[in-house]
Design a protein around this nucleic acid. Structure first.
Lengths: 340, 340
DNA sequence: TTGTATGCGTTATCAT
DNA sequence: ATGATAACGCATACAA
């Protein structure tokens, strides 16, 4: 038996009605006799009829689905954010199509192309770390396509943006280290291309400014989010270790950097926090099981997902161009562990 | 300016051609003069034309996308599997639509309904742990809809299945504990409804059979994959601790169980492996950073995703019904750490 | 209350 | 070499 799904036409023929009558009966239109309605509805459920969403999309010029573009699904922050996105989308009857860029600009452009070719009504995106040129996003936005940025935002595109207070999160983390008495605090940040990296470094600087010690350039290390990040961190840490005075603490400005830095320190036999203290951004749900238990800056990922989605849906469903764009900034959470 | 994407019709009108000519020119048909081709192609790129995938889907009765249904994205095993799925799908020009059930049967049925209503050409699924009734899957399969199971398979539906050698993985893990000299080994398994849970327990039993010690029922604990798993594990461990002789080792038969068991042991102040040893399934990429470094059974998640996808695509693209269904069983990997 | 015709964007078939 | 038309599945404006 071939795989053939039932259509309205099938019902119409079987029941000796017209397709429009069937269509209206299924949509419970008031201009159909309840007898016919009953007949149609019964038969429809009997043959397990389901409307073809593709035909609907074509007709209504909307797919009732939104696209999500992130760097990696296998990343606590993003998967938590996706959960938030899904929860709002599901409630509103929207489907979620998730795509990963794996931090590649090319993949980002391709995916964007595809999704925007009307297979999606709007887009939630946290840009890839290798994305320097924003033309693909600008073009889309200029065409009036609904876009909401979250986390890794693009400042000069005028649309809704949802992010955390990166500056403050980094400030808090660094201040925590200062209060613990650490004097020479280094920072490991993500690519300078990302605004979140720059903001976190700025927060770090601001906290240090309070100690009246201006951190030397040598204490600030940027690195890419590629497969080679571990090597870059390895190199950065090696350089830090050679500094005199030697840094006694490190602030890692992202999830991946925090764990990679732990890996490097462990492999070098450097104890945390005895030799070097470590505080960093992390949304891992395993952080409490790590050794030592780290003090971390946690982002409200789920909430960010929820918020970004509701803004996007607002954008999609509002007919007329939006004048005021939101720029939501959520607070981070410093989760302090006894040891650090 | 409204958000209006260019269509073939727009091009046709602008160039004074017919839509069919434009369509053929774009598809580089040999029956179009190269002059016209050039003209059309140039104009198309200029106005940034992209074919409407929805219209295409409607016409070709296929969406060139596949659905993936898993319990949670925020789970190392699944996100790694999804990476494998995506890598094969992308190469073949297929889109991947990911959905989560959060271990809910209802969500599984709903998602399945939606995806199968022709918005997807085939389905990769790892069933929810609360799924007992397989009618929704059977019905779909009977209609000839291409389905491939991976990891959490359904034995009595005749289609391709990809899984790991759960029996052997559990056997290896348990044997490792035996070889280390542990005498009273308990097991924490997932829901008995899942074949993977039963197979893993069977592997554990077989290993113990070699010690000529038949494990008492009291050493075998099942638990659900719900939000309350931590509590269930807590309870199970409490019960295990009351046994005499007290178990000196635990084999945890899934990712979540492994970390939850660690949490519980830690909270009870029980040292690993001094008080109780722990070996379990885990695909977390943070496992090396945990304390203590655990010996784990790792599943080739990426490869499973790749394999399942290529089988699915095969199913989708083969016109005639497949006679022989593959039942691929991949080997697990026992990653031994010094301490356990 | 029900039926007919049209269109969404595209391609395939059948003209010319 | 190019154009007209039908069809994919559905909803709706317009007839009856």
């Amino acid at each position: 038996m071939k795989f053939e799904a039932a259509t309205i036409k099938d019902i119409a023929i079987a029941l000796g009605l017209s397709t429009s009558t069937v269509s209206r009966a299924l949509r419970d239109s008031h201009e159909i006799s309840s007898a016919t309605k009953q007949l149609v509805l019964e038969y429809a459920t009997r043959i397990n009829y389901h409307p073809n969403p593709i035909a609907l999309s074509l007709k209504e010029k909307r797919s009732r689905s939104i696209g999500v573009i992130v760097a990696e699904i296998a990343n606590s922050f993003f998967s938590q954010a996706i959960n938030g996105i899904e929860s709002v989308a599901k409630d509103t009857g929207y489907n979620v199509i998730i795509s990963q860029t794996h931090e590649s600009y090319e993949r980002e452009v391709m995916t964007l192309q595809y999704l925007a070719s009307r297979s999606v009504d709007g887009l939630l995106i946290s840009v890839s770390s290798s994305t320097q040129n924003m033309d693909h996003l600008k073009a889309l936005h200029d065409r009036g396509f609904p876009i909401v940025f979250f986390d890794r935002i693009v400042e000069d595109i005028k649309t809704h943006k949802v992010m955390v207070d990166n500056f403050r999160g980094a400030y808090d983390a660094t201040l925590h280290l200062i209060n613990k008495g650490y004097k020479h605090i280094a920072v490991l940040a993500g690519p300078e291309t990302l605004s979140i990296s720059r903001e976190r470094v700025a927060g770090y600087m601001e906290a240090l400014a309070q100690t009246r010690v201006k951190p030397g350039k040598a204490l600030i290390k940027y690195s890419r989010y590629s497969g080679l990040q571990l090597e870059e961190v390895e190199q950065a840490v090696s350089q830090l270790l050679k500094l005199r005075p030697r840094p006694d603490a490190i602030f890692t400005a992202s999830d991946k950097l925090t764990t990679n830095c732990m890996r490097v320190l462990k492999s070098k036999g450097i104890r945390i926090p005895e030799d070097i203290a470590l505080v960093g951004f992390s949304n891992s749900d395993l952080i409490e099981l790590l050794h030592p238990p780290l003090t971390v800056v946690r982002q409200p990922a789920f909430e960010m997902g929820e918020l970004a989605t509701s803004l996007l849906l607002q954008l999609i469903e509002s007919k007329r161009p939006v004048k005021e764009f939101e720029r939501k900034i959520l607070a981070t959470n410093l989760i302090v562990q006894a040891s650090t």
